[in-house]
């Protein structure tokens, strides 16, 4: 994959704001510093284009509030259904 392609955010981070309690685990352990806590203390993906898709934020979220969506996989799945 070319670098330019990865920089157009291949993944989307769906964060359930009402469920997030702002513990900061996703922020602390993200190897690419994709997340930060916003002014309300909720997790927010500020650099989604840097995400490498390890899903550690999703797996370690104690609030079950994060889902990493692989756009290309989602597109492929969409095409399969057409």
């Amino acid at each position: 994959m070319k670098n330019s392609e990865t920089k157009t955010a291949a993944r989307e981070h769906h964060i359930e704001r009402a469920w997030c309690k702002g513990c900061g685990i996703c922020v602390h352990f993200c190897p690419k510093q994709v997340h930060k806590l916003d002014e309300e203390g909720k997790a927010c993906a500020v650099r989604p284009e840097d995400c490498i898709g390890c899903r550690l934020c999703e797996l370690r979220c104690p609030d079950l509030a994060i889902e990493v969506i692989d756009r290309q996989a989602a597109d492929r799945q969409g095409k399969d259904h057409e």
Partner: peptide
């Protein structure tokens, strides 16, 4: 999960949520 009970009652950063997360997976 029973979504109607979320957000859950555990404290911020509680490990029990991670156990639930892993169990569901």
């Amino acid at each position: 999960i029973r979504e109607r009970f979320f957000p859950h009652m555990w404290c911020p950063g509680c490990g029990h949520g991670i156990v639930l997360n892993a169990l569901l997976r």
